[in-house]
Design a binder for these strands. Structure first.
Lengths: 146, 146
DNA sequence: TGTCTTTTTGCTATTATATAACAATAAATT
DNA sequence: AATTTATTGTTATATAATAGCAAAAAGACA
């Protein structure tokens, strides 16, 4: 899915929800959409500065915060980076990430079974999950076969 | 399990592996063992400074690095904190953490099934896992019933 | 034991990541 | 138009983690 059509989809979602998809937010969205892998907030800031010289850390973090809340973007906790979600229109299931430590590629998968397994296991412990982080590091298909 | 017996167990493991369980490392180990929940590196540093006034960030991070490598301690990526592992003697399976956002309690569980499920799912995508991070946030038994 | 090598520590500085606080502006509401 | 609410600009600061290099300690070995 290319950046433009992702943007259109996001605009639609925002319209439906009454969320304000402002200029900065769109700019950051597009920067992320044009990245193949994950990006750090400060790398993103450097890119944004080419469009908006006055951008500051808060600018980026606020935009990322908004985009995360809409489900357009995921934060990868184990590497402090952010990545565009390519399925935000379809559903809002928790996500599992496969992070290749060789090439940096991040694959996003969504398994309802897996989600359920974790949720059930938590409930056995009397625990109610509000948000789950599943990040597997290792070697992707390409990098394993090299 | 109390701090002293955990320490003894850790000493044994180090002896067997030929790892050097130095003074600083033991001090940090004990500080962690006496904590009920997770602790940030700088909080830990503040505590360590009461014993070793000259301690610096690197002191703590090196100790934590060592303790993690031995499997004595887990880093919680989503809150940048560290927690003593109470099962390091038994096995070295990947771990799932239940983190209560109300009271800060962290429950460590080890499900082989879960590990296997994730591993299998990854393999379906041609991905080989070397390290996995599973952190569920939510509300623990006590906090849910309040 | 004395020498060499490796590991660990001490220390200073710096890098990286993220948020607080408050005024200014823009948009939505009435 | 006036008021309220959400967003942005700006400065400063908090929080987390590592780099680099010299000194010291421990282990290896003739």
């Amino acid at each position: 899915m290319n950046a433009e059509s992702l943007l259109q989809q996001a605009q639609l979602v925002c319209q439906q929800k009454g969320a304000r998809f402002t200029k900065v937010r769109e700019q950051v969205f597009l920067l992320l959409a044009n990245h193949h892998g994950a990006v750090g907030a400060y790398d993103l800031l450097a890119e944004l500065k080419e469009l908006e010289a006055a951008a500051k850390p808060a600018t980026i973090y606020r935009a990322l915060d908004f985009l995360s809340k809409q489900g357009f973007v995921h934060k990868i906790e184990s590497i402090n980076a952010f990545i565009m979600c390519h399925h935000f229109g379809e559903c809002n299931h928790p996500v599992q990430l496969l992070i290749c430590d060789q090439c940096g590629h991040v694959e996003e998968i969504q398994s309802n079974n897996f989600d359920l397994a974790l949720r059930t296991m938590a409930e056995t412990n009397g625990f109610t999950i509000s948000h789950q982080i599943v990040e597997a590091h290792g070697s992707c298909k390409n990098c394993t076969n090299v």
